[in-house]
């Protein structure tokens, strides 16, 4: 059937560092800037690892050494672009069968800095999960889940 896609989340930020450096910081040093409050580890986040190759893993490591998978690197193209598969479902659980895309591009600015643009897309995949549909139905105005319910009924 015809599928309805929720609009992707698009964010951008301009930094003083040139693209090579911005890309390096974004990927190789993700653990240095990632907000530690957003972690799946029980012991607290020690660092984040982005394996620098197509098909690489994307995960975090807790201070006790436990590993929590986040997803994969679908395309590694320094210093222009990195494409992640974000595989945490709406319950914040890693699910190898669940996938949304996070694409990050690095564009040089006239001043020698970089505009970093992030797009989190395929959000309709969240709606395909029944539990998300239920959660969204409970909240007035949530339609990502409603679309999933619609897809199920219209199938």
């Amino acid at each position: 059937m015809h599928r309805i896609e929720p609009a992707p989340v698009v964010k951008s930020v301009t930094v003083g560092a040139p693209p090579e450096r911005a890309f390096e910081i974004f990927t190789a040093r993700m653990g240095d800037w990632w907000l530690k409050t957003h972690s799946l580890t029980a012991s607290g986040q020690k660092t984040v690892v982005v394996e620098r190759a197509d098909g690489g893993r994307w995960y975090e490591i807790g201070t006790s050494g436990e590993v929590k998978e986040w997803g994969r690197v679908l395309a590694y193209d320094p210093p222009k672009r990195i494409l992640f598969a974000w595989q945490l479902n709406a319950d914040w659980t890693f699910d190898p069968d669940f996938e949304t895309e996070v694409e990050v591009t690095f564009e040089p600015t006239a001043e020698g800095g970089t505009t970093v643009r992030l797009e989190h897309r395929d959000l309709a995949n969240y709606g395909a999960k029944a539990e998300v549909a239920r959660a969204s139905l409970d909240s007035e105005g949530g339609w990502a889940g409603l679309l999933g319910a619609f897809a199920a009924k219209a199938a």
Binding site: P6, V15, I25, F26, W33, H38, L118, H120, A144
Partner: peptide, 22 residues
């Protein structure tokens, strides 16, 4: 939907943190 709004805020905060370091 709440999830999309949450993600919107989530990435906004993360990019701001990235900018501080960069």
């Amino acid at each position: 939907g709440p999830l999309r709004q949450w993600l919107d805020r989530f990435w906004e905060d993360q990019l701001a943190a990235f900018k501080v370091l960069a």
